[in-house]
């Protein structure tokens, strides 16, 4: 990524080793412009190559055509509504999955019985590609809002449960003892010690889960949706409108970048949990 997102992620992973690493090359700030220049060069070559090679825009439209198509989609064809639908499905569904996942994970971590029971189901469902659940969910819920939110929530649920469980289990038992010593009851220990100590792990789960939610919502929209970016993408492909296909892909890629940026910002606020 051109703007140092990867570097930032790596730094967050291992704060200690970042200083010597930065000595090895130029700093991330100095190198940032190179990514944008590279993008501009590729776009320029793409435009020029299509034009010189007289390539049929049915196969590969020029960047300028894609931009024109995107303007048309937003101005005349209400693409912003589809973007809104997709965002709603991703974030509302993901939020449901995250909340359910945290509650379930904490419950499992604090009750061996619940863990034993839930473990079997999670072991069976976690490795299953969630797209394979689309037909069954359509039979049960139809293709409307409840279906979209469910598939999105399912995507986020599993990574969040597993990370919450691990995070809570890894909590230093000394901290639990200290809280008890200061008068905390069982409920206060869960809310004031176990959950806060698992925050970095929970957030790692949310990151993964949001990624899965995005994939599932777009895939579900492609298969059954009449609205949303996935549906627009699929319909454009059906009528061989390659410019529109590219335009929607660019919108989806931009969405990905924005989501990653937001997560980086949250990551920075987790500095409290970072060791030394």
């Amino acid at each position: 990524m051109a703007d140092g997102t990867l570097e930032r992620a790596a730094r967050a992973e291992n704060a200690a080793s970042s200083a010597p690493m930065r000595l090895a090359g130029t700093g991330p700030k100095d190198a940032r412009w190179m990514g944008w220049v590279a993008v501009a060069v590729v776009l320029g070559l793409w435009e020029l190559g299509c034009w010189l090679g007289n390539i049929n825009s049915l196969y590969l439209p020029r960047p300028s055509q894609i931009v024109a198509s995107m303007v048309k989609l937003f101005v005349a064809e209400n693409l912003v509504l589809d973007l809104g639908w997709t965002l709603w499905r991703i974030f509302a569904g993901c939020a449901i999955g995250v909340v359910a996942g945290i509650l379930m994970g904490v419950w499992m971590a604090t009750s061996p019985r619940v863990a034993a029971i839930a473990d079997v189901f999670i072991a069976a469902l976690y490795p299953l590609p969630k797209v394979t659940l689309i037909p069954l969910l359509v039979i049960w819920l139809g293709t409307g809002g409840p279906f979209m939110l469910t598939i999105s929530a399912l995507g986020a649920f599993f990574p969040v449960v597993i990370n919450t469980l691990l995070g809570v289990r890894q909590c230093d038992p000394g901290l639990v003892l200290a809280a008890r010593d200061l008068g905390a009851n069982q409920r206060q220990i869960v809310r004031r010690v176990l959950i806060p100590s698992a925050v970095p792990s929970i957030f790692a789960g949310v990151r993964l889960g949001l990624g899965v939610s995005i994939i599932l919502v777009v895939a579900a929209e492609m298969v059954v949706g009449r609205t949303g970016l996935g549906a627009r993408l699929f319909l454009a492909g059906q009528v061989l409108n390659t410019e529109d296909v590219f335009a929607v892909l660019v919108v989806l890629a931009t969405l990905g970048i924005v989501v990653t940026k937001l997560q980086d910002m949250v990551d920075e606020r987790l500095a409290r949990w970072r060791p030394n």
Binding site: L175, L177, A178, P196, S197, V199, R272, W273
Partner: peptide, 10 residues
């Protein structure tokens, strides 16, 4: 008071 301090890091 604990040997390993047991302060809440957050």
């Amino acid at each position: 008071v604990w040997q390993s301090f047991n302060l809440f890091p957050w």
